[in-house]
Simulated assay, not measured.
Amino acid sequence: MNIFICTAYLLSQPKLTKVKHQNFCYTLLSVKNFLHHIPNIKIQAFAKGKVAKQVFDLYKQKNSVVIESSIYIKKMKTINNHKNKSKLIFIKIHKIYNLSI
């Protein structure tokens, strides 16, 4: 398992759903990129259980948080099935901490 710890901004309102008494939460994050010629990285984040409820409660637009998570990179082919592939980055949040002052 890959451990990924970063500082990120919450870009979108977390979507909280409940399935069989289990909370699930999806949101979009922005991770700062320290290279000058590449913009910030947008990542789709997923959480479940008590952590999902914490993500939902911590939300404020552009709120800065520290996230401990595992990272997944999925490769997807384009629609026209050429050799072009795109990569999507997903993270599963294990712990989240608020950095607002």
Rank of each mutant, 00 (worst) to 15 (best):
A52I: 01
I73W: 06
K48C: 05
K92A: 08
L88R: 09
L28T: 11
K50S: 12
Y26T: 13
T27Y: 01
I89R: 03
E68K: 06
K85R: 12
P14C: 08
H94P: 00
L88N: 11
T17W: 10
S64V: 09
A45V: 02
H82W: 11
T7V: 07
K85D: 13
S30H: 05
I71S: 04
Q54Y: 07
P39I: 06
D57H: 13
F24S: 07
N80P: 01
K48P: 00
A8W: 00
Q44R: 11
A52M: 00
N63I: 09
L16A: 03
Y59P: 03
T78S: 14
I71Y: 02
K75E: 15
L35S: 10
D57Y: 11
G49D: 02
K60T: 05
K74V: 08
S86R: 12
I38N: 10
K32Y: 09
Y59T: 04
Y9V: 03
K95R: 11
Q22D: 08
I91K: 00
L10C: 04
Q61V: 08
H36F: 15
N23Q: 14
K20A: 12
G49E: 03
S70G: 05
N23M: 12
H82F: 12
D57S: 15
S70A: 09
S30G: 09
K53R: 10
S86H: 12
K32Q: 10
C25I: 02
C25G: 02
Q44T: 09
Y59F: 15
V31W: 03
V66Q: 11
I91M: 06
K20E: 15
V55F: 02
S64G: 02
S30D: 06
V66I: 15
Y26K: 13
I71E: 05
K62N: 15
V51F: 01
A45K: 01
K85N: 14
N40R: 09
I38Q: 14
I67T: 04
K75C: 11
Y9E: 15
Q13H: 14
H21P: 00
I43H: 04
V65Q: 00
S30K: 09
A45P: 00
L10W: 00
T7L: 09
N63P: 00
Q61S: 08
V19T: 14
K50P: 04
L28W: 10
T17H: 10
